[in-house]
Amino acid sequence: MTNTDSKAMQSGYASKKKAVNTLVYIILTVMVLIWIFPIVYLVMQSFRGEPGISTSYLIPKQWTFDNYIRLFVETDPKTGAVLPMDEMRFPYLRWILNTLLVAVLSCVISTLIILMVSYALSRLRFKSRKMLLNMGLILGMFPGFMSMAAVYAIMEIFGLKQQLIALVIVYSAGAGLGYQVAKGFFDTIPRSLDEAAKIDGATRNQIFWVIILPLSKPIIVYTALTTFIGPWTDYIFVSYFMKDNKDNWTVALGLWNMLGNQTMADWFTVFCAGAVLIAIPITILFVIMQRFYVAGVTGGAVKG
């Protein structure tokens, strides 16, 4: 092969490469457009001034910010007076606060539980370990909502019926089964660390708190964020557990109720506005989480 040949090939190679890259950019752009379309549609609907449910056009004919205002301020249809939160039909702010409370509490509890369980199953060796691993695997396969009625009855016994704390318990009690990802992560931390600490006379308790946890920042952030996001998007459980107790609804159930047969035509755009508002913080969390998700999951989920 002569020198010129190689040069020609190289320039041919470069232009081919450029063409390929352009193609990739085009494909990516098209795919992003497809993926982002429903979200853009949602945002546009939330600014729509004209009435009715979903439209066949994307850009609103009348732009308005009213839908967002209606989430927080409701007026009496007759007198025009601003209603206090207790009398609002859709007290969005209260639902946001409820959800925030439930999310924070269940996030703290579940994260703790997940870390404890996955640490024990990953780095400690004891007799029933294998059995617990298998049990955890199969228990997670029971359709969760199948036993909702029983859980509801149990809450009743504890006097927690239709209480926010019951939701916290529901969301975090099953956390023990979500150990896979975190366990996978712990598996990748070299065991020599434990051994060295043990020689220095540290107990397993100390090893857990002093050595392992500081190394586990990605998985802690990942676990905390996923458990925090859960309550914002769950509809099935909360609708079963809160029933007609509107004061204790979370935002997902509240929004869903705007779409009742009687209210949908009036409230659809407000529903969209409400959905956009909760999507914003979650989006931010997701972007932050992305990094940890990759770090946690590649060490974790894929390795069982």
Binding site: G52, I53, S54, Q262, M264, A265
Partner: peptide, 9 residues
């Protein structure tokens, strides 16, 4: 959407 919203729209 269901009846009512459809009729209204």
């Amino acid at each position: 959407a269901g009846d009512n919203p459809t009729v209204s729209q």
